[in-house]
Design a protein around this nucleic acid. Structure first.
Lengths: 335, 335
DNA sequence: CTGAAAGCGCTAACAG
DNA sequence: CTGTTAGCGCTTTCAG
């Protein structure tokens, strides 16, 4: 049986409420009694039961993070940022993997509400029905959406500036003199990737790119990048630069080119998006657009902490974080 | 204000204890009342407060996982397995990143105890002082150690069979006809890596390997593998096969060889350990020893669940999971 | 500054 | 089968 404030009250000859005060408020209790109580508590090796406290205070000091899959290195990084910030604020973080399955997501949320978490960080609600989203919003827990800028107004968000990143990629490739450019991206409607494509194409158009741009849609994965690249090089062997919508696709592209005997960057320049840790490890080291993943997680946690602490639910907040071009060795000037 | 069993008791004209029973036990309550209560509960959109319940039952239905860093893809995979199993058992998983810092680790544990978690999964306690370890063991929470086989008897463990894996690597390289073999590994005393080295060397010795084996110690990281390989090839350019203690080091070795103009596997065969997802993505695809990372996490959670459910603390359990050789393209027969 | 007492929401004897 | 009652460990009025 763990020892409680009752024990330490008995042991130190004061009332449990005094113990409680001594343990919490620095004020409202005589220095001397306070000292004594603390000493007894230490001697008995007392540690408070936060569950009981939470029942009374209606705060669990626990946050939750729902990602699609922690094995995705992008989310691992975000998660680390979120956990660090939560901990710094005195909160725990419970981790949930939803695989983007709407049912799983709703089950997690229900379970988390029952556990009285003070706030939820979510990867996405895009796959939830309108009704489910309303239900979420109505639940009352503060929710901040990660990696979504276009979400409904009911939720706060933190996201990287995907559109600006797309534009950066375009600008860089143009500056290197490329004219025959392709963009490899994911499914047609995929919030973030769509934003990247928009920024990319908009910049090229504004710059009066001399030639048409090829945009290929496929799976936003390693093998998707590989497949699309094979297809691209068959259709348009004269291509001189590729913008892959994320690093994983870029890795797939590298593999495909290797197999087809096209060299990066000698024959074809390649730029990715995300700046995964692996990007500097592959050969050639990948030039890419850096997303501040850790900072996104951290900022999201901090935002959620603010929301959780203000009982009164304030308007939703939105944060857009800047991205950055990381030059490595997968691009070069067109001859 | 959330609605409680009191509300639904009032609304349905029965006592709160009847409500509680209706909601929990299927038995001991008339089907009719039960149905009615459930209906009212549903109508009021009731969900139970697990914190209150936990206060009474002394079970939080929450597990915790302390890893050094979730960004390490190895742990991400383990974590996913652990979370899936926890959830399947009706438990939440709180994630903690310790960076292997003993102080952080102890702080996490203290905080988790206060939150009344039902069990803790830990990456390692190797860096904890004897006293800290005893303190942990004395705390009373079930603890299972991940990825440790040699830990003190006070804790349960689940681990991959590192020694057998090392032996497998040796056997494979020998079968390919290699005689001039090097082993690149981490610091001298590093539980798992040491086990791999032992298995490797023991097998070679037993097989009467014709030549001496070179073992190089360094950092167990990408750059560690890179550095060691540079050093190795300077000292012994005639080496024909390398066993890297983990995939990350193997990736570093690939990079170093690329830079030195030595081809894998044409000039030198390379085998890793872990079978990270990247292993199939690098060039050449890496032959390696597969650790069942997901299963380790799952098994650890399941073991912890068993421990948590049996109030009486049983003896510690130990599980050693098998490893597997994954043949890809980084090794070939010696000419 | 300290004590008494109520109660957070739920479970679990114990009666009936 | 159902109601009464007593807490779980802690915070928080309200008195004194």
């Amino acid at each position: 049986m763990a020892i409680t404030i009752k024990d330490i009250a008995r042991e130190s000859g004061v009332n449990i409420s005094t113990v409680s005060r001594a343990l919490n408020d620095a004020y409202g209790v005589h220095q001397e009694t306070r000292g004594h109580v603390l000493a007894v508590a230490a001697r008995l090796n007392y540690y408070p039961n936060r569950v009981a406290r939470g029942l009374k205070t209606r705060r669990s000091h626990t946050l939750a993070l729902i990602v699609s899959d922690i094995r995705n290195p992008f989310f691992a990084e975000v998660t680390r940022g979120a956990e660090d910030a939560a901990r710094a604020g005195g909160y725990d973080l419970v981790l949930c993997n939803s695989d983007l399955d709407p049912r799983k997501q709703m089950e997690y949320v229900a379970s988390l509400l029952e556990k009285q978490v003070d706030g939820i960080l979510m990867n996405s609600v895009a796959d939830l029905s309108r009704k489910q989203q309303d239900q979420l919003a109505a639940s009352g827990v503060p929710i901040v959406l990660l990696n979504r800028s276009t979400a409904s107004k009911s939720f706060s968000t933190v996201c990287a500036d995907n559109e600006a990143g797309g534009a950066m990629a375009a600008q860089y490739l143009l500056r290197l003199g490329h004219e025959n450019i392709a963009h490899l991206t994911g499914p047609r409607r995929h919030g973030n990737l769509t934003d990247r494509a928009r920024g990319f194409l908009r910049f090229l158009k504004a710059a009066n790119a001399k030639q048409g741009i090829t945009v290929l849609h496929g799976e936003n994965s390693f093998s998707g990048g590989q497949t699309l690249t094979q297809k691209l090089l068959r259709q348009q062997p004269e291509i001189s630069a590729i913008f892959a919508a994320n690093d994983l696709m870029a890795f797939g592209a590298i593999r495909a080119m290797l197999e087809l005997g096209r060299r990066v960057p000698e024959d074809i320049s390649l730029i990715g998006f995300d700046n995964l840790e692996l990007a500097s490890v592959v050969h050639p080291p990948l030039t890419t657009i850096h997303q501040p993943k850790y900072e996104m997680g951290r900022a999201a946690s901090e935002m959620l902490l603010r929301l959780a602490r203000n009982q009164s639910k304030p308007r939703s907040q939105h944060l857009l974080l800047g991205v950055e071009l990381i030059q490595r060795e997968s691009c070069r000037k067109r001859l």
